[in-house]
Amino acid sequence: MIGTITAFVIPVWIVLILCVGLMRNVPLVTSFVAGAQEGFGLTVRMLPHVVAMMVAIAVFRASGALDALVGIAAPWLDPMGIPAQVVPMGLLRTMTGAGSIAYAGDVIAQYGPDALWSRMVATIQGSTDTTLYVIAVYFGAIGVTKTRYALPVGLAADAVGFVAAVWACRVFS
């Protein structure tokens, strides 16, 4: 039911834009092309920022430093009701969307889709976004290099979302 509604949102939105454009005498193709041209420039501008982030994150993971960080953090988080199995998810989610989906897939495959840990990683994946990537993309595209307090705010929100996701899974199950 919900799936059907979401499936129709994009097509309806496209048709709506086209109809309003036609009624208001917008030269449809000319406008589309003019707007679409910006897409390339934006991509080129944000690419170095995204590459910078991805390299740093890949190095940090491949070196084993991330696993070490998880090892340090896990005993402190355990008394808060956060199992060691979901701790890597919290760290990965902030850094890499693809990496956290892969980790969630691992947990689901290992413990079964309905295990508490599986529901926790799935909830973490769905409830926050990849802060480092979002910053690289949005600020990279417009050329902002001084991000001020945006990073600490995003990271703090990630931490709250992470704990809330774990606790919500305990409460609603």
Partner: peptide, 16 residues
């Protein structure tokens, strides 16, 4: 980006 920025230009010029 190319597709949606094109659509959004139409939306902008159409007043949406």
């Amino acid at each position: 980006l190319v597709f949606w920025l094109g659509m959004m230009r139409i939306a902008q010029e159409g007043g949406i």
